[in-house]
Write a protein that binds this DNA or RNA. Structure first.
Length: 112
DNA sequence: TGTGTGACGGGCG
DNA sequence: TCGCCCGCCACAC
């Protein structure tokens, strides 16, 4: 990708998230693992917060490995994230993505 | 400069 | 099977 990928961990996260197909979702750990820092899944979530100000970053497609919309609160509205997902055909119930394993998009495999 | 926290994940009891 | 603890890195106080 970039020659300075190690220097910009967050920017790397943005790039991967940006590549997530519409109607698909992934987990923080999957992105972190793809970046070679599976232990630092938290940092991915942190990058998401920063990406909040960025446009073109479908942060709503990035959720935890439970398939739970843990960061919905950061979208301004409690149902904004869910609405965005439903708009892409993703079924969400009780802040939880249905068929998460089926909609799961692994960058390490799909983006390989 | 040091301590604590955080949109997580995996391991252990 | 459920619950608790540790790790990892960046940022705020």
């Amino acid at each position: 990708m970039k020659t300075d990928e190690k220097k910009n961990f967050f920017e790397n996260v943005y790039e991967v998230v940006r590549l997530i197909p519409e109607g698909r979702v992934t987990s923080y750990g999957a992105i972190a693992a793809y970046l070679g820092a599976k232990r630092s899944a938290r940092m991915v979530g942190w990058a998401m917060i920063s990406s909040h100000a960025q446009h073109g970053i479908p942060a709503h497609r990035v959720i935890n490995r439970n398939g739970l919309l843990t960061g919905k609160h950061f979208f301004g509205a409690p149902d904004a994230m869910q609405k965005l997902l439903e708009a892409e055909g993703i079924v969400v119930a009780d802040d939880q993505v249905q068929d998460f394993d089926r909609l799961f998009w692994d960058p390490a495999k799909e983006l390989l």
